[in-house]
Design a protein around this nucleic acid. Sequence first.
DNA 1: TATTGTTATACTCTATAACTATA
DNA 2: TATAGTTATAGAGTATAACAATA
Lengths: 146, 146
Amino acid sequence: MTTQRAAVEDTTKELRGLVYELSRRLSDHVRASVADLDLTETQANALRDLNEPLTMGELAERMCCEPPNVTFVIDRLQSRGLVERQPHPTDRRAKHLVLTAAGHELRERLLRQVTRDSPLAHLSEEDRENLRQTLLRALGRGEPTE
Amino acid sequence: MTTQRAAVEDTTKELRGLVYELSRRLSDHVRASVADLDLTETQANALRDLNEPLTMGELAERMCCEPPNVTFVIDRLQSRGLVERQPHPTDRRAKHLVLTAAGHELRERLLRQVTRDSPLAHLSEEDRENLRQTLLRALGRGEPTE
DNA sequence: TATTGTTATACTCTATAACTATA
DNA sequence: TATAGTTATAGAGTATAACAATA
């Protein structure tokens, strides 16, 4: 039906705008939230990914950026005593990035901070559970709907 | 029940991480998508907000940044003939930012480009409709669940 | 020869402060 | 006196290219 197809296209168009807007809202929220912790958004992203030891290259891949930028960001976190460059167990070319105790502590504060007052924080419990499952599918995990 | 409360806390914790991850995925997606159009993410955000004439200050507010940054971004877009600084109808201090024909055209291409291959593009139609309604509530519009 | 990480370089983003023109 | 916008400046993010150490 042309009517139904038009409706589908309208939904697509609206969802497109909503996704774009949500993306910006969340980014703004993260940036404002972590400012209290003297972290930039990028530094916070790096800290979040370091829940396990990673090499510089692995971290670059998770952060979707180039290796030289990771060098820059890790320099900053290391100068604050949040992360250490340890020798890699098996490859002497590589570095093992490991959070210090202070790093782990700040990482936990970061995650709590970002959750609080999130644009999604005031949703109902039902919305949150539905959203959780939808997001899992959007991120390539979780079960398909049929 | 302690079991139920623990489950709620687990859901909160997981949702927190998913929201953070989605935020980064969407931002990366926008950045990669608009690179084809020779736009940075920030330039794309400005272009998107200019579907109606705005002053520099109004655009700064929508972009959640300071006025000097808007000057910089608009300089770029203006030098490419995408936007014009016109005199404001009632306040000679202010500028009226108006998209050119080329600006409107690129804006449409931008919105289509961002939609395509979005992390949310491969969701089922049911998921998309549910997500749309949830996002409307998250963004402070739409009906509450009860 | 290929890979890991760094250094060098350049452009963009972001914020603060000082300034000009207008209200 | 207050506001809209610009300019100047500085720190941070991002990418490419060239390089050193190691595989």
